[in-house]
Amino acid sequence: MLMGRPDTTPYDLRFQLLGVPVRIHPAFWIVGLMLGFDQTDPKRTLVWVAVLFVSILWHEMGHAMAAVWNGLRPSVVLYWMGGLCFSERDRLGIGGNIAVILGGPGAGFVLGLLTVMIGAGVGGLTLQDNLALFGLGSGSIREAISKFNSPYVLSFYYSMLFFNFGWTLVNLLPIWSLDGGQFLAQVLTSRHPYRGMQQTYTVGMIAAGLVALWAFSADQTFLAIFFALFAFSNYQGRRALQQQGGYGSFDVDRGDWWKRGR
């Protein structure tokens, strides 16, 4: 997502990874612990947070590496909503922008495939086994689980697939400001910035609303609230754009888009 940069705190964790400055806001750990808390087995909570950290950082580094390859100097922040990569993409054309946007999801799929390959090589897990873990396909979930010598290894493996395949696909939905929504915006605004952004917000509002309704009907309360907030955010964005007559920034990395005309 491209949103405002979270405020710094004295408790931020800072380091550099492959030359990219990384900052982790304390809220990242707090929300991660809340979402993955397992009162019956706290060790599973630690596994969840570890996978969350690795997967989101890997995703944001995918954006960052694509930015570096395009001559930019990115930075990464992990915070309560996930991760952000700042890279001043306004310097790039549409091709470079799309490369940076898709770098994150691409990295997620690569990490998921690496996990599957390790599972096949070390544990003998087949495609049917992987599908069975998620209740898909014709494989036996009992047989799949039996190939793990530890419940924590199973939890780690399952979570890695869940995040790097499942949530990567969700992140590609055409909802601003998910990566899929940013990709859609690049395509629609390439010829007509104002109208294209209006269309992006409209599509995002409808798509997020439909996912929220589905999640609510499936008793997925957290997911329903999450996408309801996205629907409302897209509604607000479209309304603000109309009130400003199009003269407003829709991307922190392209703050002067309106200067190039509507």
Rank of each mutant, 00 (worst) to 15 (best):
A107F: 13
D251G: 05
V252I: 15
Q186A: 13
H59D: 02
V47G: 03
W69S: 13
R195M: 11
I94E: 12
V68N: 02
P26H: 04
D12K: 10
P105I: 01
Q220I: 10
M61W: 12
Y152K: 10
W257V: 12
L223N: 07
Y152P: 04
S55T: 07
Y158G: 05
L169F: 15
G106C: 04
F156C: 09
T40V: 05
H63K: 10
F183D: 04
L241K: 08
Y79K: 05
Y194K: 12
L241F: 06
G245K: 12
P6L: 04
L213A: 15
L173C: 06
L133R: 08
Y158H: 14
N164G: 06
F37C: 09
Q16N: 13
L161N: 03
T168E: 05
Y194F: 15
Q16K: 15
L154P: 03
A99V: 10
D38S: 14
A64S: 13
A208G: 09
R89G: 06
G123L: 14
L33K: 04
R91P: 08
Q128T: 09
I145G: 01
A99F: 07
V31Q: 03
S75C: 07
Q16M: 11
Q16F: 11
I98P: 07
P74T: 00
R14L: 10
V116F: 14
Q39E: 11
N234R: 00
V77M: 14
H63P: 12
V170H: 07
L18F: 15
L131M: 15
G4Q: 14
M65D: 00
A107W: 12
N234S: 04
F148L: 09
G139L: 08
L154H: 07
D90K: 14
R142M: 10
L178C: 03
T200I: 08
V54G: 03
F156Y: 15
F232D: 00
E60H: 11
G137V: 05
V22A: 02
L125N: 02
F165G: 02
D41K: 12
R238F: 00
V110D: 02
P105H: 04
L154C: 03
W167L: 15
G104R: 03
D41Q: 11
Y152N: 10
A99E: 13
Q16A: 15
Q244A: 15
A215Q: 07
V203P: 00
G112A: 14
G62S: 05
G209H: 01
Q220S: 12
D256M: 12
L52E: 01
A224Y: 08
G137F: 07
T200P: 02
L102H: 08
Y201M: 00
C85H: 01
Y235N: 03
P21S: 10
E143R: 13
P26K: 05
D90A: 11
F216N: 09
S87H: 13
G62R: 08
L46Y: 04
G103E: 05
L136E: 06
G139P: 08
G245Q: 11
G124C: 12
L35T: 10
R260K: 13
G95L: 08
G121N: 09
R191S: 14
A231G: 01
A64E: 05
V49Q: 05
Y11A: 14
L111T: 06
L35P: 05
A185R: 14
L172Y: 05
I56R: 05
L113A: 15
D41R: 11
K43I: 13
D38Q: 13
L33R: 02
L17D: 06
